[in-house]
Computed example of a mutant assay.
Amino acid sequence: MSRPTKHAPERGDARNRLLEAARDIVRKQGFAATTVDDLCKAAGVTKGAFFHHFKSKDALGVAAANFWTDTTGAFFEGAPYHAPSDPFDRVLAYIAFRRAMITNDIPEFTCLVGTLVQEVHATAPEIRDAAGVSIFGHAETLEADIAAAIEVRGISPDGWTPQSLSRHFQTVIQGGFILAKAGNDPELARDALDHLDRYVRCLFGVHAVAYSGDPR
């Protein structure tokens, strides 16, 4: 048996490769259709390496959801929609940024945790909960800007809160992904974001305009 210290870096790299493989393959073909063999082949590791890091496919699913949370959290934290000084402009810039992320490659722009939770919400509660932490956690990152926009614009929300609106953003985004998959057409997801932009402008009493890519 080789000494653990000698191969520790390789094992760590294998774990990340498996998580990256899960991120890509599950978005293409779903969790149920993704096999351990698929993941090992894509990651270039053996089954022994897989089961060294993950006791089961479900354990990999939980870890993949957490990996998605960590990597996308860092990505969105550094995204340019935080730049505008006006909080309402930041809210619109977020929507524009999410729209700009939609490419013609549907698996590339859709959400791993959204895909996971749609499949396993009733059958794999640990994966469902990890995916929920990711989705609700991302929604929470928008609440401060929405609250600040309410204050700056001097509006009085009627039956909605920063939390409920931030979660509605995720409802529209995830729903747009589903429509894009159902119609095999990314434009359906773009349309959903355009409607969200108009809806938010109406909520804040701002004239809704045809989408131009300008968040102001």
Rank of each mutant, 00 (worst) to 15 (best):
Q163N: 07
G176W: 01
H195Y: 13
H168N: 11
E126K: 07
D158T: 06
I155S: 01
Q174D: 14
A131F: 02
V172P: 00
D194Y: 01
V206C: 04
A189D: 03
Y199T: 05
G132F: 02
I178T: 08
G176A: 05
A189Q: 11
E187M: 07
D194F: 08
H207A: 15
H195M: 13
Y199L: 07
V120Q: 00
D145G: 00
P162M: 02
E187R: 09
P157Y: 05
Q174V: 08
P162E: 09
R201K: 13
I150P: 15
P186S: 12
A131E: 04
E119M: 00
Q170N: 09
I155E: 03
F177I: 11
A124G: 00
S156V: 15
I146V: 06
R167V: 11
T171S: 11
R128D: 15
L196A: 10
G176R: 01
Q174F: 06
F169V: 07
L165N: 04
V133C: 02
P186F: 03
W160Y: 00
P157A: 12
I127S: 11
H195Q: 10
D185L: 06
S166P: 12
E187N: 14
Q170W: 12
D191C: 13
P157F: 09
I146F: 00
F204N: 12
G137A: 08
N184D: 15
L165G: 03
G132Y: 09
F204R: 06
Q163R: 13
H138C: 09
H121L: 02
D194A: 07
D197K: 08
A149M: 02
A149S: 13
H121Y: 14
A180G: 04
A189H: 02
R201F: 11
G205H: 05
Q163T: 06
H138A: 12
A149W: 01
I150L: 05
I150F: 07
D129N: 13
F136P: 00
R201Q: 04
V206E: 04
